[in-house]
Amino acid sequence: MDVQTAYQKTIIFSTIKHLESNQTITDSNLPYVIHLSNVAMEILIASNNTAHFDLLYATQVALLHDTLEDTNTTFEELEREFGFEVAEGVSALTKNDNLPKEEKMLDSLNRISKQRKEVWAIKLADRITNLQKPPKSWDNLKRIKYREEAEIILEKLKGGNEYLENRLRTKIEEYEQYLD
């Protein structure tokens, strides 16, 4: 399957799943597919700046990265539709709800670190995309913690994708404007 066909199949699947959950971008009426397509766009550009990058695989995982965490999609359903490796990548990017909140991110980063570098790239791209103007409902402490998490992501996934690491570093610096 070519990347364009995979992108179209995957974004339709993911959009339907997020619409079923009535998920929008935080504090907006914007459909969640905007976030997913932004993460995929980061991956598409990164692939042009990264040697030995499996764009087909990375595109699918990028567009699906929140389906297990935020929708009623199951691992088995992802495996049936997109294959075991894609489902495994999405699973690594999914926070474990059985853990205390303060352990979820590090647990996910540890699972990501055992995956292919494309999965590392997707986590970097996800945080790059999320380091836009923060939601109005976030107080300064939440914004500070979010930036600190971004720094942890950058440190833990160092060596995963130089292009996206540099982008994330820049976004972290730019995010300072939103802190009191």
Rank of each mutant, 00 (worst) to 15 (best):
L30K: 11
I16K: 15
L36P: 01
L30G: 02
D27K: 07
H35Q: 04
T10F: 03
T24I: 14
N29F: 13
I34T: 04
I34G: 03
N38S: 08
S21T: 09
S14I: 03
T50A: 03
N48T: 09
D27P: 05
V39I: 12
D27A: 10
I11L: 08
I43E: 00
I11V: 13
Q23P: 00
M41N: 12
F13T: 03
E20C: 13
I16A: 09
I45G: 00
E20R: 14
H18M: 12
Q23F: 12
Q23E: 15
A46E: 05
I16C: 04
V39W: 02
H18P: 04
T26D: 14
T15P: 06
D27R: 04
I16F: 12
A51I: 08
S37Y: 06
A40S: 13
V39C: 03
T24P: 06
N38L: 14
I43N: 00
T10M: 02
E20N: 13
F13H: 05
I16D: 13
A46K: 03
I16Q: 13
V39L: 05
E42F: 07
T50K: 06
F13Y: 15
P31C: 06
N22Y: 10
I12P: 00
I12K: 15
E42T: 00
K17Y: 02
N49K: 14
S14D: 03
S28A: 09
S14V: 03
Q23R: 15
T15A: 06
L36R: 07
L44I: 03
N38T: 07
A51S: 14
H35L: 05
V33G: 07
I12A: 09
I45S: 00
E42K: 08
I25G: 06
I11T: 11
L36M: 05
M41C: 07
N38H: 08
S21K: 14
K17T: 02
K17D: 05
E42C: 07
K17N: 09
H35M: 06
Y32D: 02
S28W: 08
F13R: 04
S21H: 10
N38M: 13
T24Q: 13
L19N: 15
T26S: 13
P31W: 10
N48E: 14
F13L: 09
N29R: 12
Q23H: 13
V33Q: 12
S47I: 03
N22S: 12
S21Y: 02
I45W: 01
L19P: 04
L30V: 13
N38D: 10
V33T: 14
D27I: 04
T10N: 02
H35E: 02
Y32N: 06
S47R: 08
S14Y: 07
H35C: 01
N48S: 08
I34H: 07
N29P: 04
E20H: 12
S14L: 05
N38K: 09
I45H: 01
T15H: 07
H35A: 01
S37Q: 15
Y32F: 14
H35T: 07
I16G: 02
S37R: 12
M41T: 13
I25A: 08
I45R: 01
Q23S: 15
T15F: 01
T10I: 11
I45M: 02
L19I: 12
Y32W: 10
T26V: 14
N49M: 09
E20M: 13
T50M: 03
